[in-house]
Simulated scan of single mutants.
Amino acid sequence: MFIRNITLAFTLACGALGSATAAGQAQFMTGGVGMEERGKMLASKEDYNVHMTFATRGSGVYRSDVQVEIADNKGRVYLNANDAGPLMYANLEPGRYRVTASAADGQVLRRDMVVLPGHTKELYFYWSEPATIVE
């Protein structure tokens, strides 16, 4: 209980979202907008076994408007976060998962991943540039 509260307090202090480690939920942190916040995220990176980065293809502009859902192969949701990014770190038990990442403009990307004991999983999500209207 004490460690979970420290983790949650640290996560909130970083300007990131956090999730309690209740049964069926993954512990996570998200953020990285600005150099200071990015530094705090990177300092905590090794505490998590899944690392995700959200950006726009071509320009490389980071995205911080992402809805993320991580579910196992039976559809049980372990993580659900709004306005995630541009970095997101999570701790998941070993197993198979599907990550669904939805950008604010409606583009949805999915990745299947296997989390192995003692290993880190890196995932990169790149969305197309949003359509622009030329008049």
Rank of each mutant, 00 (worst) to 15 (best):
E37F: 08
D112M: 12
R96A: 10
M52N: 01
H119C: 07
L116W: 13
L123E: 13
T11Q: 12
A43I: 00
G106F: 06
E129L: 08
T7W: 07
A9R: 15
A90D: 02
L116Y: 13
G32A: 13
G95A: 04
N82V: 10
V134G: 05
G85M: 00
N73S: 11
P117F: 02
R110V: 11
M1S: 15
R110Y: 12
M41E: 02
E36S: 03
K40L: 06
G118L: 07
L8V: 13
N91F: 09
G58T: 05
R96W: 10
I70C: 01
V33Y: 07
G34A: 04
I70Y: 01
A101C: 04
D112A: 14
V108F: 05
W127I: 10
E122F: 13
A20M: 14
L8D: 11
L8A: 14
R63L: 12
P130M: 05
R98Y: 05
E37I: 12
P94F: 09
Q67W: 05
N80F: 07
A90G: 04
W127D: 07
Y62N: 03
G58M: 03
N73M: 13
Q25H: 14
L87Q: 00
L109A: 12
H119S: 10
V114I: 14
N5E: 15
F54A: 03
A26V: 11
K121R: 12
Y48W: 02
V108S: 11
G60W: 06
P94Y: 08
Q25E: 15
P94H: 11
V33A: 07
L12A: 11
L17G: 14
V33L: 09
G106A: 03
A23S: 14
T100H: 08
D83V: 04
G32V: 12
F54G: 01
D105S: 07
V68M: 08
T132I: 08
S44R: 10
Y97G: 00
D83Y: 04
E36V: 07
A81I: 03
R76N: 05
E37M: 09
D65G: 01
G32T: 11
G15Q: 08
G34P: 06
K45I: 05
L42K: 02
A104K: 05
V108M: 09
T120Y: 11
W127C: 05
A43Q: 03
A131S: 03
F10D: 11
L109T: 08
R111L: 11
L116R: 14
R98C: 10
Y124H: 12
S44D: 03
A71L: 05
F28T: 15
R38Y: 10
N82T: 10
L87N: 00
M52L: 02
T120E: 10
D72H: 02
T120I: 13
N91Q: 11
